[in-house]
Deep mutational scan, measured.
Amino acid sequence: YKELDVHLRRMESGFGFRILGGDEPGQPILIGAVIAMGSADRDGRLHPGDELVYVDGIPVAGKTHRYVIDLMHHAARNGQVNLTVRRK
Rank of each mutant, 00 (worst) to 15 (best):
Y1I: 08
Y1E: 06
Y1H: 06
Y1R: 00
Y1K: 05
Y1D: 06
K2V: 07
K2L: 09
K2E: 06
K2T: 10
K2W: 09
K2G: 03
K2D: 05
E3R: 07
E3Y: 15
E3I: 15
L4R: 02
D5L: 08
D5A: 10
D5W: 07
D5N: 15
D5C: 11
V6Y: 01
V6W: 00
V6A: 03
H7F: 15
H7N: 12
H7L: 09
H7A: 11
H7E: 15
L8H: 03
L8P: 03
L8C: 05
L8E: 02
L8F: 03
R9S: 12
R9E: 12
R9W: 12
R9P: 10
R9G: 07
R9H: 13
R10K: 14
R10W: 13
M11C: 07
M11Q: 15
E12V: 07
E12H: 09
E12Q: 12
S13L: 04
S13Q: 11
S13R: 10
S13M: 07
G14V: 01
G14H: 03
G14N: 05
G14A: 02
F15K: 03
F15C: 02
F15P: 01
G16V: 00
G16M: 00
G16Q: 02
F17S: 01
F17Q: 01
F17P: 02
R18W: 04
R18Q: 14
R18T: 15
I19N: 01
I19R: 00
G21Q: 09
G21L: 07
G21N: 05
G21I: 08
G21E: 07
G22H: 06
G22A: 08
D23L: 11
D23V: 10
D23Q: 12
D23P: 03
D23H: 12
E24F: 09
E24C: 10
E24K: 14
E24R: 12
P25H: 07
P25Q: 08
G26H: 08
G26I: 03
Q27I: 09
Q27T: 12
Q27D: 15
Q27Y: 07
Q27K: 11
Q27H: 11
Q27P: 03
Q27E: 12
P28S: 07
P28L: 04
P28R: 09
P28D: 04
P28G: 05
I29A: 05
I29K: 06
I29G: 02
I29R: 03
I29S: 03
L30G: 03
L30C: 12
L30A: 07
I31P: 00
I31R: 01
I31T: 00
I31Y: 00
I31C: 04
G32E: 11
G32R: 06
G32A: 11
G32M: 02
G32D: 14
G32L: 03
A33S: 15
A33P: 13
A33Q: 13
A33G: 11
A33V: 06
A33F: 04
I35Q: 14
I35Y: 13
I35S: 14
A36Y: 07
A36C: 08
A36P: 15
A36K: 15
A36W: 05
A36Q: 10
A36N: 11
M37W: 08
M37C: 13
M37E: 15
G38H: 04
G38N: 05
G38Y: 00
G38E: 06
S39I: 04
S39E: 06
S39W: 02
S39D: 05
S39F: 03
A40Q: 05
A40S: 05
A40V: 04
A40F: 03
D41E: 12
D41N: 06
D41I: 04
D41A: 13
R42A: 09
R42Y: 07
R42V: 13
R42F: 07
R42I: 13
R42P: 05
D43I: 04
D43P: 03
D43W: 03
D43H: 04
G44H: 05
G44E: 05
G44P: 04
R45E: 06
R45N: 11
R45T: 10
R45S: 09
L46C: 02
L46M: 09
L46N: 02
L46F: 02
H47Q: 13
H47S: 12
P48S: 11
P48W: 05
P48E: 15
P48T: 13
G49H: 05
G49A: 04
G49I: 01
G49N: 08
D50N: 02
D50E: 02
D50W: 01
D50S: 00
E51D: 02
E51T: 06
E51N: 04
E51G: 02
L52W: 03
L52R: 01
V53D: 04
Y54I: 14
Y54F: 12
Y54V: 14
Y54L: 13
Y54S: 15
Y54C: 14
Y54W: 10
V55H: 00
V55K: 02
V55D: 03
D56V: 00
D56M: 02
D56L: 01
D56C: 03
D56A: 02
G57N: 11
G57Q: 10
G57H: 07
G57P: 00
I58L: 12
I58P: 00
I58T: 12
P59I: 09
V60N: 00
V60L: 09
V60E: 02
V60Q: 00
V60T: 10
V60C: 11
V60M: 10
A61C: 11
A61H: 10
A61K: 13
A61F: 14
A61E: 14
A61S: 13
G62L: 04
G62A: 06
T64L: 09
T64I: 07
T64P: 10
H65D: 08
H65W: 09
H65Y: 14
R66W: 08
R66F: 07
R66E: 14
Y67W: 09
Y67F: 12
Y67M: 11
Y67E: 12
V68C: 09
V68L: 05
V68P: 00
V68Q: 01
V68M: 05
I69T: 15
I69E: 15
D70A: 11
D70Q: 11
L71R: 08
L71Y: 08
L71F: 03
L71P: 00
M72E: 02
M72F: 10
M72P: 00
H73E: 15
H73F: 07
H73Y: 09
H73A: 14
H73R: 14
H74Q: 15
H74C: 14
H74A: 14
H74G: 12
A75P: 04
A75C: 08
A75Y: 03
A75H: 05
A75G: 05
A75F: 03
A76C: 09
A76Q: 13
A76I: 09
A76G: 11
A76S: 11
A76V: 11
R77H: 14
R77G: 12
R77P: 04
R77W: 08
R77K: 14
R77S: 12
N78G: 08
N78R: 14
N78A: 11
N78V: 13
G79D: 09
Q80M: 13
Q80D: 10
Q80L: 08
V81P: 00
V81M: 08
N82E: 10
N82K: 12
N82L: 10
L83H: 02
L83A: 00
L83I: 13
L83K: 02
L83P: 00
L83M: 09
T84Q: 08
T84Y: 06
T84E: 04
T84C: 08
T84S: 09
V85C: 05
V85W: 01
V85S: 00
V85Q: 01
V85K: 03
V85M: 03
R87L: 04
R87C: 07
K88H: 05
K88S: 10
K88L: 12
